[in-house]
Design a protein around this nucleic acid. Sequence first.
RNA 1: GCCGAUGUAGUUCAGUGGUAGAACAUUCCCUUGGUAAGGGAAAGGCCGUGGGUUCAAUUCUCACCAUCGGCUCCA
Length: 561
Amino acid sequence: MQKIRHSFAHILALSVKELYPDAWFGTGPDIENGFYYDIKTRTPINNEDLKRIEKKMKEVLKRNLVFKKKTTTKAEAKKIFKDQPFKLEILKELEGDKVSVYETGDFIDLCKGPHVESTKELNSNAFKLEKIAGAYFQGDEKNPMLTRIYGLAFKTEKELNDYLKLKEEAEKRDHRVLGEKLGIFMFDDEVGSGLPLWLPKGAILRKLIKDYLYQELIEDGYGFVETPHIGKLSLWQTSGHWENYRENIYSPIDIEGEKFVLKPMNCPFHVKIFKSQPRSYRELPLKMAEFGTVYRFERSGTLHGLTRVRGFTQDDAHIWCRENQLKKELTKLLKQGLKILKKFGFKEYNIYLSTRPEKYAGTEQGWKKATTILEQVLKEAKLDYNIDPGGGVFYGPKIDIKVKDTLGREWQCTTIQVDFNLPDRFQMFFINEKGEKERPYMIHRALYGSLERFIGVLIEHYAGAFPFWLAPVQIKILPVSDKFNKYAREIKEELGDCRVEVAEEKETISKKIRQGEMEKIPYLLIVGEKEKKAKTVSVRKRGKGDLGAMKMEKFKEIINK
RNA sequence: GCCGAUGUAGUUCAGUGGUAGAACAUUCCCUUGGUAAGGGAAAGGCCGUGGGUUCAAUUCUCACCAUCGGCUCCA
């Protein structure tokens, strides 16, 4: 499949070359479900052109071309690609003197392959040019931007159509669409981009999600704290965030000649609480948690529904411990993170271990030690993980768990980070058993990541059909006509603690059912003449349909299961 | 931030160089209904914001704002 997709990329390039003879080519690999090619053309390529190029590709495929591989020297390749500056750039970075090129018709590409033998193996009905986008050459912002043409490619036409259908379905689960339809959150231009407004149903979700974790953490010995949304700039200068993270911090606010910033993270406040009194080794590990709302200036193009916003609430916590406690605490955190994902039904996620970046605080030795511990933790938990080289934060290595959204995009939720920076910068210490000052190790962690992002992926995961315990409205009672509104209210009383609504509007029962289904409420209770007389309710379960009439005791048994 | 696309009623979308329509939602009237839309009427829009071209701009053009698809960056 990879060979097929990669070969399609070359056919795309060849077709573009015929339509735009002076085009410069970047790279064109195969990707999940298809391929792309980065191209620089003198005139911009638009959606109409995309159709033209696709047509050209079909024409090219009919020519029965072969993919010819040749091995040559760098010097020779330089001549071949003399009119292709991006190829020359790539060539420069290749090691060794031998390079391979592939020739297909009039198109010759610097490429290590492999490819299919000939275009006979490419089904011209099983590919489709999908979209155009901008992409920096070699993924570097400082480089020029090329036009990336994305294509889908499969073995058969059916597979392509199945994929397109799947994608169409996935789009319906988009949290940005569902969130508004279900009354969970909204955005408003005048409020500002990346600043969600939570509607009543969304506020219930937030509370349920917070309450669940609050309970878990209290049982685990965490102390919950609450800290302000702004603080003096000097605090962030001390922490090093002003130096390393400045472009994400909102500009300082001048208050009576003193500078304040909106907090981009909660850590310095927690450190201050730690330092507010002398700490003993007996208190360690000391665990401090907060649902802390932070504000980060994210570049406009990066915002995305609830999954990337400018103001968000982290389920933040900091753990201070001694070196010999580090492994145990990290193991526990990882397990906690996985437990939570399981609780919410997530099965598709990837784990990453991020190592030391170029710019870092602390010592090389310290990084090595901590990274080794993190790796041990992952190995002992028998988890598959990927290494993200250089992906650590400036202050320490970390383990991240990324959850996929419906369109396959990954969002980092759980993060567990070791910090070599703050304990030093804030001169933190505790008194050990010998009565000496000792510097604690510090762990940052967020299990949900942020409520915003977590709820975003949660909406997509459940397609808005939340399980009973999470549903903002768990039960809706639908009187057949307004003559039964009173009985409906009595039933609501009887359901006490559940989140129940009564549909008292003057509409037909069919319409009320339709609305209830569209609101994705777990149980609809239909009440009319029959039910009132027999003191029962007719239960309709979301996705399952009519369960028939039953006494309230029976219904309560069902929902309490 | 960058490349490209988009912006019309609460929502989803038609449409036009001579200031606008549909469906659903909303309000009112009739209907008191049995497992996914009963019927009718009304109301609702500075056509994203600000310049420019034009006798005339929602339509053409520029800038800005916002959204979408990517890239870069991140929870």
